[in-house]
């Protein structure tokens, strides 16, 4: 089974060329940070309520990335809320993304491909080698969004992450998106860590909007 970070990375790749879709940098950062926190929560290592995020179990997850995040939370003496930790681990988003990409390559789902542009600039793409995992994630999401079924926790998480990255606006036509928007919001709210990611992203966007409105001094 893929981790949430691997699933969201997979969803942010263009199906054909393997280029990253445009996702605002802050959205991707906090989605990746939130993905590892939710993964730890699903594995029974941490728990949260509206006031704080706290440790339940510090034993190894047998996953180096998750263990390093868990260790950092465990060593903090003061308790903080979900928002604090989502922003704190936002600084590790690049590492989380690179680990996820490497694992997807190792699993034969992606392949890394270096391309040169104008013989000078190099860019790395990740074309999909095996699209079963990506199709499976998308099918799960679609089935839930167009039904009244009660979602399961992992699906709630991935829907919240995808919405934070504004991926549904790309997956659906404008009218389809308007039709499922309410359902996306309902599902996203069900997970406390997930809904905090959306709040953090919205706050950043609000601040960016304010800064743009004020303009340079």
């Amino acid at each position: 089974m893929l981790t949430l970070a691997e699933e969201i990375v997979l969803l942010t790749l263009d199906d054909e060329g393997g280029k990253f879709l445009y996702v605002p940098e802050h959205s991707m950062r906090y989605a990746l940070s939130g993905a590892v926190l939710m993964e730890l929560a699903f594995r029974g290592k941490i728990d949260a309520d509206p006031d704080s995020l706290f440790i339940l179990d510090t034993t190894s997850t047998n996953d180096g990335m998750l263990d390093s995040i868990l260790k950092q939370i465990a060593k903090e003496e003061e308790r903080h809320d979900c928002s604090y930790w989502i922003q704190y681990f936002g600084r590790e988003a690049y590492r989380i993304q690179q680990v996820a990409l490497q694992r997807l390559c190792d699993a034969g789902i992606l392949r890394a491909e270096d391309k040169s542009f104008l013989w000078v600039f190099k860019s790395r793409r990740y074309p999909i080698r095996n699209d079963l995992a990506e199709k499976e994630v998308k099918q799960r999401i679609m089935a839930l969004l167009f039904s009244d079924d009660i979602p399961d926790p992992r699906d709630i998480a991935i829907i919240g992450l995808a919405e934070s990255c504004r991926l549904f606006e790309r997956m659906f036509s404008r009218s389809e998106y308007e039709r499922v928007r309410g359902r996306i919001e309902e599902i996203g709210r069900l997970e406390l860590i997930g809904q905090t990611i959306s709040k953090v992203v919205r706050e950043i966007e609000f601040q960016l909007g304010q800064a743009t409105a004020i303009g340079p001094m």
Partner: peptide
């Protein structure tokens, strides 16, 4: 007296299984 994020998930899992 208290429901955490894990508690919410547990209620959902049961509701889903039952429904």
């Amino acid at each position: 007296s208290y429901v955490s994020s894990a508690g919410l998930r547990a209620i959902l899992v049961i509701a889903k299984r039952f429904s």
